[in-house]
Nucleic acid binder design. Structure first.
Length: 594
RNA sequence: CGGGGCGUAGCGCAGCUUGGUAGCGCACCCGCUUUGGGAGCGGGGGGCCGCAGGUUCAAAUCCUGUCGCCCCGACCA
């Protein structure tokens, strides 16, 4: 370590918020260069390499072959797929000396598809799976959380090419299996959740999320069965439709001046004394005005979504389902175009009747057929009661729009769901024919006719995995790597000023290396023991060996970074014992004599 | 793009209210002491005080503009 390019920091960097960011910087694994752009120092690179090694092994196990594309790509490739425009500001664009336009690839579907098209032309060539480990560039509006969400990051991306949907499904599950092995071997606590396929098109899609409080993705998991989904893709069980008994009263209009919020509305209604038990926000139907724009359209259209008044509309969840149609909150200028909509007093009763008939009205499935609501009367200062879905209004359709919360019911078994946070480590999905069609990738079939190719797309965030792992394993002393990715097997500390200590430690290091145990040897002379101990804990190597004052008694100390269990072993057998600990082949209980 | 905060040494910060030519801790270099929990003493090197303009005898400090960064939100295979 006396020559290792490393400088640890005593203080957290001021710009870091999440634990992985603070610790990776403090422990000298990475350094910031620009927002969302980091340099990897020797220790960080060592961890990164180990993660990549696991990824490569598992990709090989499913027969995927590694290739490598450039990150710098001429515009024409992304014009061909329409993504030069579609991807918008998230693409880093640049020009060469001849003013030809290039981009730094945010993803490589185009290149993979065209490569395959150029090389393969027979059905006999398929199925095929290719992958690469590549730096990706995305000019994120707001990079954050250090390594977790950068503008430059490393991703393993792979693509499967099949002749049939059955083939695609097999490729998909091959990848899914490989990802399970990758994340399990890396030591992640992760969850596979249903996801929306997003702008990529396609159908089946699942995400691998590392559970952690600093995660950006919210997902739900059932407390009883194994249902789990990204909240954008989640469904919730809905109450049964209300069977009309014919006894529901007709719609009544009530004066409700100054009721701009659901709370004030509920208060006014309760003051009316319409029924014995008090009304709550859940008895009101909230109609939120949004605007949508389909690709290629220039004008926004209005969309109204009805949800129970005690619920918020989850725009992320909505946009996940509406993709590629854009959706956002409507502004005053949008409302001005629909004079029948009285802000704060919108009710679905008039929709579809007159001029706003062009406005689409969707309800959350929680607004079941036959349900009875208090809602706007479409007149300033008035609300309507006893408004029944199916009698007084009929929505154009249903869409899961409410913000999902703890306690909502599982769509499969009806048990309560709980909401948790996670970091997206990987994503698998069935792309289908989108890119193959766009680029004319086909194979000549047995009958001499072209057969369509169907693709799957699979990604692992490699740099993100390093940070996510730090996020899941750190403790109050520092990083705490699972052995498989640790920058070394053993952190060997020599303490004291006695030359004998350094001689013995150097010899031990050598013996360990010869047994295939990688050693990070702290041979810094004249550095106090406290500093060395703190550093060894901060760096997070799983096994710490101390050659120090025990040497006088002929022993060295072995310490487990995670559990802090310590024991002394004789110098003579130290290498052997340590190698066994590292290999996990030691049979005696920790602390026992070997 | 909206809201909030911050730019002073490699890192973390003080100084700015009330202008007088830059300081503390860590890190780094030298010497002596110290060596099982981020050592002590002494000596030292390192700063376009983000940038530009203005006010002033004098600006890190006041004014204007500008650039950048961080956090929250919007956005985001």
């Amino acid at each position: 370590m006396s020559t290792l390019f490393l400088r640890t920091l005593r203080d957290d960097p001021a710009d870091a918020e999440v634990p992985s960011h603070k610790l990776l910087v403090r422990a000298g694994y990475v350094r910031r260069v620009a927002p969302g752009i980091y340099s990897w120092l020797p220790l960080g690179l060592a961890v990164l390499d180990k993660v990549e090694k696991v990824v490569r092994e598992e990709m090989a196990s499913i027969g995927s072959q590694e290739v490598h594309f450039p990150a710098l790509i001429p515009r024409e490739y992304f014009d061909a797929s329409g993504r030069w425009e579609e991807y918008g500001e998230n693409i880093f664009r640049l020009m060469d000396r001849k003013k030809a336009e290039y981009l730094l690839a945010p993803t490589h579907e185009e290149l993979f598809t065209l490569l395959v098209k150029g090389e393969y032309s027979s059905y006999k060539d398929y199925p095929l799976s290719l992958y690469q480990i590549q730096i990706k560039y995305r000019d994120e509006a707001r990079p954050r959380a250090g390594i977790l969400r950068g503008r430059e990051f490393i991703m393993k991306d792979s693509y499967s090419f099949d002749l049939s949907h059955e083939g695609l499904v097999k490729s998909y599950y091959d990848h899914r299996g490989a990802y399970e092995r990758i994340f399990s071997r890396l030591g992640f606590d992760y969850k596979i959740v249903f996801a929306v396929s997003g702008a990529m098109g396609g159908s089946a899609s699942e995400e691998f999320l590392a559970r952690t409080p600093s995660g950006e993705d919210a997902f739900v998991q059932c407390t009883n069965c194994d249902y789990a989904a990204n909240t954008e893709a989640a469904e919730v069980a809905v109450p049964p439709a209300v069977v009309s008994t014919g006894s529901t009263n007709a719609v009544q209009i009530h004066d409700t001046p100054n009721t701009p919020t659901i709370d004030t509305l509920v208060e006014v209604f309760n003051a009316l004394g319409l029924r014995d038990e008090p009304f709550s926000a859940a008895d009101t139907l909230k109609n939120v005005v949004l605007r949508t724009k389909a690709p290629g359209e220039t004008e926004w259209s209005l969309l109204i979504v009805g949800v129970p008044g005690d619920r918020e509309v989850d725009l992320k969840r909505l946009s996940g389902q509406l993709e590629p149609i854009e959706v956002e909150q409507a502004g005053p200028e949008d409302l001005a175009k629909a004079p029948l909509l009285v802000k704060g007093y919108i009710g679905p009763q008039i929709l579809g009747l007159e001029s706003p008939s062009k406005i689409k009205y969707l309800v959350d499935p929680l607004v079941v057929e036959g349900s009875v609501w208090i809602t706007g009367a479409n007149v300033e200062g008035k609300h309507a009661a006893n408004v029944v879905r199916g009698r007084d209004f009929t929505p154009d359709g249903e869409i899961g729009a409410v913000e999902i919360r703890d306690g909502d019911r599982c769509p499969r078994c009806g048990s309560p769901l709980e909401v948790a946070k996670g970091i997206e480590l990987g994503h698998v999905f069935q792309l289908g024919e989108k890119y193959a069609k766009a680029f004319g990738l086909t194979a000549l079939g047995q009958e001499g006719k072209p057969v369509g190719i169907t693709m799957g797309s699979y990604g692992v965030g490699v740099t993100r995995a390093v940070a996510a792992l730090a996020e899941q394993t750190y403790d109050d002393k520092g990083l705490c790597w699972p052995r498989i990715v640790a920058p070394a097997d053993v952190h060997l500390v020599a303490t004291g000023k006695d030359d004998a200590v350094f001689v013995a430690a150097a010899k031990l290091a050598e013996e360990l290396e010869s047994k295939g145990v990688s050693v990070l040897y702290d041979d810094r002379y004249g550095v106090s023991p406290g500093v060395k101990f703190k550093d060894s804990e901060l760096l997070g190597v799983p096994t710490i060996v101390i050659v120090g004052k025990g040497l006088a008694d002929g022993v060295v100390e072995i310490k487990d970074r995670k559990t802090d269990e310590r024991r002394n072993v004789p110098v003579a057998s130290a290498a052997e014992v340590i190698a066994a600990v590292v290999a996990g082949t030691e049979v005696t209980a920790p602390g026992g004599q070997t």
